[in-house]
Amino acid sequence: MCGINTVKMNNDLVKLSAESVNLWFGSKQVLKNINIDFAPNQVTALIGPSGCGKSTLLRAFNRMHDLSPDARIEGKLVLEGQDLYDGHFSATQVRRRIGMVFQKANPFPKSIYENINYGLKINDIPKAERKGIIENALKESYIWDELKTELDKPATRLSGGQQQRLCIARAVALRPEVILMDEPCSALDPLSTLKIEELIVKLKKDYTIVIVTHNMQQAQRVADKTVFMYLGEVIEEGETKELFNNPKNELTGNYVKGRFG
């Protein structure tokens, strides 16, 4: 009954997908029969009012709900044809391939250098290669020029925008295939937001990006495709321009025009 507008894409154009996903916290159903495909090297925005389940869906993709004892998932979450939950992958493997950037920048209470180095270290990347990777990741995230002389400073001293870009660099350094972003700019000022948005657009040539956002303008600026969710269901999805200018569903129209949310 929902996701009715889904036109199944050609399979090799699907990087990541949800198939009939239901999710409960205790007895409360938060996701209802979600079916979405995410194409490779595209930015897809998940929009919808608070509590619509968009963050919950995002976190299901890198198994962040594993730690919530009362979360229960049904259906399939699939990365390149492989179910993320069927025991083929461990949670650690999934998270290695699907990186995540959080709502509030959460750098480790370590130096800037160590923030990126830590992920490399635990993931067994040879010591000799690490320095280059770190430099590269910082360049990819466009903070190398700002930070190259203070790599040994504590990351917690950076500005909010710099911290968030460092967190993106930390994710990028591990060369994941997909990067999930959970309202990455909601705590930032407009200028930092702009920088992150530019970064997102540049990153999509190497990564598949799924971004949850509250900000309609942001979705229109960065996303190729947009998915509108409401009360745990996918109401409408499509090309960003199409969805914002010609919404097929009345709810979508009301939401993107700012009548509720």
Partner: peptide
């Protein structure tokens, strides 16, 4: 969020 930061880059619990 501190725990999630580590888990998200592939650290075990």
């Amino acid at each position: 969020s501190t725990r999630e930061a580590a888990l998200a880059i592939g650290a075990t619990q």
